[in-house]
Design a protein around this nucleic acid. Structure first.
Lengths: 231, 231
DNA sequence: TGCCCCAGAATATGATCAAATTATTTCCTG
DNA sequence: CAGGAAATAATTTGATCATATTCTGGGGCA
């Protein structure tokens, strides 16, 4: 009854009410990208419902979303699971990222403000710390956020969503590979990219990202090829 | 272990019961691509629930899926609508299709069997009939099915879904443009593409599709640019 | 013009029905 | 008599609906 005037006094809590299905979606997304949800592992709606402490309906909606984005697949009749990537799938992903990521990097370089560059640099610094600590989870999350931030700076929402969708597909496999190899042997081209961006050399930035993508994806391909036959 | 022999005897009638949310999804999808759901037009869940004669839950799930695919947007807090494309959006779509469509055409040419070619030719023939008849709805649907079939032949599921997602985004605008111009002035490069495929000249096929894409998309851009300011 | 209240829409829960998978039992064969 | 396969029973899971609750937007009143 008390029409509580919206409490705007807390500037940090700008998210007064987030729908449950949205919350569930983000939790599941993080679970797929960074969490313990391994490729091939099957989950049930009711299982997730209990695990996340929510009703079935929000879980169902979140699942529909993730399935539509390719992060999950309808495993046969009764289960959803993180998809296992075939060699052909990996080739497709490499091909697609090899095009879209450099393009976004190019646009981002043209549009980046100083604050954007600083944010990227800060993320990359945190990333180095995570690598040094051997913190796999933090590495995965920061690496993702680095690229995601780059997509946002490019101001190309449709291409950014395409790139984001691709990430959702290979993220789980990347996690598996990194878990096997440890965080030490994970070189990236972020430094070269940042330098190119600072120099406003879009072509060089695109080239650096392209190398970064190829390097990472080829690692995934090789690791999956030699280890899991059916992966 | 023992592969329980599932009934594979009837490959055609394998869909005795389709979930309601799946049916709703397809209906809504067709409504967006070929139907009367115009860009900018807002719909409500309850409205769709009555219009399609289904409960709210399946409608909600279908909407989540379409929103995730970019076919619909969350208009503010209360409504969903077909998104209006900005000039920048169109540029992104052209850019993306210019890459992905030719690539799929190339792969399709390498893999196409004779039956595939015949199917494509049949679709294109029907398309000509639809144009001659001035049947806009049939034109839109056949044109889509022609390209979609091409995607399938390429046997690259991830790239195909990307291309399909792009179609969902510009389809509504294409419909508006074609509605304005009539079906007579809608040239395509399908004939050239089919010839190239038959000759197994993948590069030529890719080139033809690229021209087809550019031609169509530029028409959309120009039409929206000159007519609707905010489109 | 500004504020408050109300109608309506969206979100979320729980229950119910149907389908499927799993476990158990029984029967047949070697 | 023992082992296994097929059939059936039981539990689990998914799909849908009806309903309660919350929130937004608009209209009426001061």
């Amino acid at each position: 009854m008390t029409t509580t005037a919206q409490d705007l006094s807390t500037p940090e809590a700008a998210l007064p009410r987030l729908p449950a299905h949205e919350v569930i979606y983000r939790q599941l997304r993080d679970l797929v990208l960074f969490g313990d949800l391994a490729p091939g592992e099957a989950v049930t709606i009711q299982g997730l419902s209990e695990r996340l402490g929510a009703g079935m309906t929000p879980v169902r909606e979140a699942l529909r979303r993730l399935i539509a984005e390719g992060a999950l697949v309808f495993q046969g009749n009764r289960r959803v699971s993180v998809p296992l990537l075939s060699a052909d799938n990996i080739s497709e992903l490499i091909l697609a990222r090899q095009w879209v990521d450099p393009h976004l990097a190019l646009r981002a370089t043209e549009r980046a403000r100083l604050s954007d560059l600083n944010q990227l640099r800060a993320l990359d610094d945190e990333l180095d710390v995570a690598i040094a600590r051997g913190d796999l989870r933090a590495y995965l999350e920061l690496n993702y956020r680095f690229h995601k931030r780059l997509y946002e700076i490019a101001e190309a929402p449709i291409l950014a969503r395409m790139a984001d969708g691709l990430w959702l597909r290979f993220g789980p496999s990347l996690r598996v590979v990194c878990g096997r190899m440890g965080t030490q042997n994970l070189p990236d081209k972020h430094k070269a990219m940042l330098e190119a961006m600072q120099a406003r050399d879009s072509e060089a930035a695109a080239r650096a990202i392209r190398e970064d993508v190829i390097q990472g994806m080829e690692q995934v391909r090789q690791s999956l090829e030699q280890s899991g036959a059916l992966c």
